[in-house]
Design a protein around this nucleic acid. Structure first.
Lengths: 224, 224
DNA sequence: GAGCTTGTTGTGCAAGTGTATAAATAGCCC
DNA sequence: GGGCTATTTATACACTTGCACAACAAGCTC
């Protein structure tokens, strides 16, 4: 008998079986499938049919949860940004540690998996590339960026205070901008060519560079 | 008489007038139009018809110069990368200057127009976002990146030599990676939100951070 | 289990895509 | 100026895309 492996009857025009999922679950599945599709095929390759296939549903269902593709992409981007900033900030949550240790932990967390990740980078670049033309994307980025930089600035202030230094607002801002740049730049290098660096190398470079930026004395290591 | 402004006769099914351009000129025009379209509409919005319209020709002509859209995009990306690395390296060409001055000039050049440019950034991000899925793009990036980093490493070696310091290969590599990251990170910040920084501010931060990274003593300025 | 709600499927469609190819004409050679 | 070549236009085509809508069934309520 042909098609014996398929449980569907031969001649019945039977529909596909399906399950009703909760709304929140379906939305998140669709968003995740969207991010997967965008990461793999780019914004152009992420068609509604591709996304639906990956989410295990049919394309028509997407319209039941999102007004259109545009809104789906926006929500997907928002979800991505939220996850990224959440992970980054989580690294600062060490309560019982010196400011300097917390800063080092922050840098380390941002320069290792899961934040160093080719898929996340691909998504970030794909979306941010449209920030120049899409004001809503630009705003979403700016908010995320400023939030991140403010976190950095707060830690820097603590670190310098512990060192009995009293930077003014402008110096603090410059430190935050520079440290943010260092982390961003190393993050990109790690995402794009992670295998060029030995494990922990990027984090070590990051900590050293950040501490040099702040004028902290190296702790007990000869260096050139 | 209707349509009097249009020089075409009323009833003649006249074709559009055109001029024959040199092959090289046409190819470059098409590539430039491609970059414009990608920057404005993303890879998805850069259709052959959009590109042709911007280049002032009709869509069919593209096939005369490029086998397909894929090849057109690849050549456009190659042209973009070539221009970027060329501009960056040009900043190092100051013959009669101290190594430290050349390094500062290099940083400054990379953190001002025309290298700080929203359009170029948009293009870079759009293309690089596909590097994870497109090996040819990944290779093109890696070559550009390593070329850039080697330039940095060479200048760093000169600067440190002038300071009578003798870093080993590993330290030199780390310096180059860090400085590259600083420039990249500040470049991104400037491209994405240039109006948040006063003119020259990014370059000033960049120089200060780079010199701190290398352990150079600040020249004649109090700082916190 | 009957009935109802609505999550889900499947099909259809107009617009737009890249590509193929024939027809036309610009500009050089003589 | 006449003719030739190949650059350029214009049209056609198969295919994909996002979106609309009607049919269907999963699973809750009673």
């Amino acid at each position: 008998m042909p098609d014996a492996a398929d449980p569907a009857p031969m001649n019945a025009p039977s529909r596909r079986r399906f399950r009703r999922e909760g709304e929140e679950r379906r939305r998140q599945d669709l968003i995740e499938a969207t991010l997967d599709s965008v990461a793999e095929h780019g914004l152009q390759g992420a068609t509604l049919r591709t996304i639906a296939l990956r989410a295990g549903v049919t394309a028509g269902l997407i319209r039941h949860y999102f007004p259109g593709k545009e809104e789906l992409l926006q929500e997907a981007y928002a979800a991505l940004m939220g996850r990224m900033t959440e992970q980054a900030k989580a690294a600062l949550a060490m309560e019982d540690a010196s400011p300097r240790q917390r800063l080092a932990a922050f840098v380390t967390a941002n320069l290792n998996v899961p934040i160093i990740d080719a898929r996340v980078f691909s998504l970030w670049a794909t979306f941010i590339g449209r920030a120049g033309a899409d004001p809503s994307l630009a705003r979403a980025h700016r908010e995320g960026y400023l939030g991140f930089r403010n976190e950095v600035e707060a830690v820097v202030a603590e670190v310098l205070a512990a060192e009995r230094r009293e930077p003014d607002a402008g110096q603090l801002r410059h430190h935050a901008i520079a440290i943010n740049a260092i982390i961003d730049g190393l993050w990109i290098e790690g995402c794009l060519a992670g295998e060029m660096f030995s494990p922990g190398e990027l984090a070590a470079i990051g900590i050293k560079t950040v501490e040099a930026e702040l004028g902290l004395v190296p702790e007990r290591e000869d260096n050139q």
